[in-house]
Design a protein around this nucleic acid. Structure first.
Lengths: 143, 143
DNA sequence: TATTGTTATACTCTATAACTATA
DNA sequence: TATAGTTATAGAGTATAACAATA
């Protein structure tokens, strides 16, 4: 035998499985809107008139720069995002188009009901505690 | 404005970021051993003489069957896993070779120090609570 | 007839390195 | 020289369908 913690107790596996279970709640209606989940994260990060450079956007959406480049090309082709002139001409500053904001509003409405269902099943207070714990874990590893 | 929860408070984003931060602790030494993280999950699931069919293995490692087929082909080519004759001849039952177990032992030694470091930074008790909470979340969404 | 697993297909994401353009 | 972003490449994830072999 070895002294590995029982596989189910592994933090990495627990994170993977939890993420799988949670994203499953959103995949269907996001896909139905013609978006992948990473594409949806980008749109969500820009919702409400936010303008953002791609480095910040990559960090906020947890998408690596090469993926983000492709995603932005795709979203731009579908007229969901547009580029804003930036002072620093190395930067690419992005915002939603009116079409993009409309799509956000539509998908977000369904997402809210899904969030509510997760909170109902898991517990509202437990959810707050869990998100805080996850963010604390991340900070303790990065700092 | 919209009534989206603040982006940082989102469960999906918190899960993604936490997973990113945790896997970053393991990626370097697993990669140095010539393995990807999914390949490592497979080897870890089989460590200690475990024999497992691919359906169970796919579930335990959170890898979809088509991906697992590819990964097993790769690991087999590198002589890290081998097939075991099974009663039900539809099943493909897998175990580690001696080479595979050696590689596990080597990588696992480093992984243990990484786990210990995470526990030290985040708190041993908090870690137990977090893993329990993640597993409870998953069960509440699946059941 | 149902189940196990593989193959096929298409597209996307993940990750790293090398590169271009601007500062 | 440093930074922002893109391109290139390989492995892996996502999803569905079709298929062979076995039960």
């Amino acid at each position: 035998m070895n002294d590995a913690p029982h596989y189910d107790d592994s933090l990495t596996i627990a994170l993977l499985r939890a993420r799988e279970a949670v994203t499953a709640q959103f995949r269907e209606h996001v896909t139905a809107a013609g978006l992948t989940l990473p594409q949806w994260r980008v749109i969500r990060a820009l919702a409400g008139g936010v303008e953002m450079d791609t480095t910040t956007l990559a960090d906020r959406t947890v998408i690596l720069p090469p993926s983000l480049t492709r995603i932005l090309r795709h979203l731009g082709k579908n007229d969901l995002i547009e580029q804003v002139p930036a002072r620093d001409r190395r930067q690419r500053v992005i915002r939603l188009t009116a079409t993009g904001q409309s799509l956000f509003d539509e998908v977000w409405q369904v997402s809210q009901t899904r969030y509510a269902a997760i909170e109902a099943a898991f517990g509202e207070q437990e959810m707050v505690v869990l998100v805080e714990s996850l963010n604390r874990l991340r900070r303790s590893l990065k700092g």
